[in-house]
């Protein structure tokens, strides 16, 4: 690359990714936005031209609005639960001997590599009326009769948490490894017991990892489709499912597109607000 300016070199290095993003992300997204601004399939409606009619429907139709609301709720709960489950695992990963660390990391990567459908099916079996969880509850006398756990919001959340775990564990683990051990030791030398040292220093200092993990997890949950389809019911449908129904069953592309664009905007808005909040609270870091 002799003679080429650093700027040109940078651009050329970015070019493949840019071409890919434009061709397979921006163009379809643009098409979808355009579609969402039409009033009816194939513009057979006499009210031609572009307008916000479909967004009005998303806003005012009970089903799509409730689905959107439910999607945000399920995603928020799942993100919080994922954080609660992932944090101790990341801490354990951070403190354990190299052999166990490698073993756990491999397990995480294997679970990432296995099919989502297979994993969801696993939850269907596990949580089924005659599944192992119910058998355990019956055997322990906690429940008198099998509990109906599958095809519910709860089952969807459990499977989403499971799916999102690696996306939460890895950023937090990464943030933990960047905390110098002297911080914990400083807290201890100043009189903080192990738990207080953990909550007073490690937790706030691992905030970048928590932020990255929760952002990823929330985005993943917001766009979840297969998991709520398999473990939920029509009554607990998330917005992707409702949109897919418009695309695949009703063949109402504009309405479906409007739902997806609305989902994207809502996700973006929530994550933006979250980022600004975190920035304001932790503005003194680094």
């Amino acid at each position: 690359m002799q003679g080429a300016s650093p700027r040109l070199t940078g651009f050329l290095l970015l070019a493949p990714a840019l071409v890919f993003l434009i061709a397979f992300y921006l163009v379809p997204l643009g098409t979808m936005v355009e579609e969402s601004l039409r009033s009816a399939p194939n513009d057979m409606d006499p009210r031609a031209g572009l307008h916000l009619f479909q967004y009005d429907r998303v806003w005012n139709s009970g089903r799509s609005w409730r689905a959107l609301e439910r999607t945000v709720r399920i995603s928020a709960i799942s993100t919080l639960l994922t954080l609660l489950v992932a944090y101790p695992i990341a801490l354990f990963l951070f403190q354990v001997r190299a052999f166990w660390r490698t073993a756990i990391l491999i397990t995480i990567f294997v679970s990432l590599a296995s099919s989502l459908i297979v994993r969801n099916y696993g939850w269907l079996v596990t949580l089924a009326d005659a599944g192992p969880v119910n058998q355990l509850l019956l055997a322990l006398g906690i429940a008198d009769e099998p509990l109906r756990m599958v095809y519910s919001e709860g089952a969807t959340i459990v499977a989403l948490v499971h799916y999102a775990l690696p996306f939460m564990i890895l950023p937090i683990y990464g943030a933990l490894t960047r905390i110098p051990p002297s911080f914990v030791e400083a807290a201890q030398s100043l009189g903080a017991g192990p738990w207080r040292a953990l909550f007073g220093t490690v937790l706030p200092l691992s905030m970048p990892g928590i932020f990255g993990g929760t952002t990823l997890t929330f985005a993943i949950c917001m766009s979840a489709f297969v998991t709520p389809l398999m473990l939920g019911s029509p009554a607990t449908a998330m917005i992707s499912q409702v949109a897919a129904e418009q695309f695949l069953v009703q063949l109402n592309f504009p309405f479906g597109s409007a739902m997806i664009v609305a989902l994207t905007l809502v996700t973006f808005a929530i994550l933006l607000a979250y980022t600004l909040l975190i920035r304001a609270v932790f503005r003194h870091h680094a």
């Binding site: 400083a186 201890q188 030398s189 009189g191 017991g193 192990p194 706030p204 200092l205 003194h284």
Partner: peptide
């Protein structure tokens, strides 16, 4: 005694000041 009960003052090479505190 564990470290937090020894009543020692430590100054670390990297100072280890908590970045989230004034």
């Amino acid at each position: 005694l564990p470290p937090h009960k020894r009543n020692l003052g430590l100054v670390f090479q990297d100072y280890a000041l908590f970045p989230h505190m004034t």
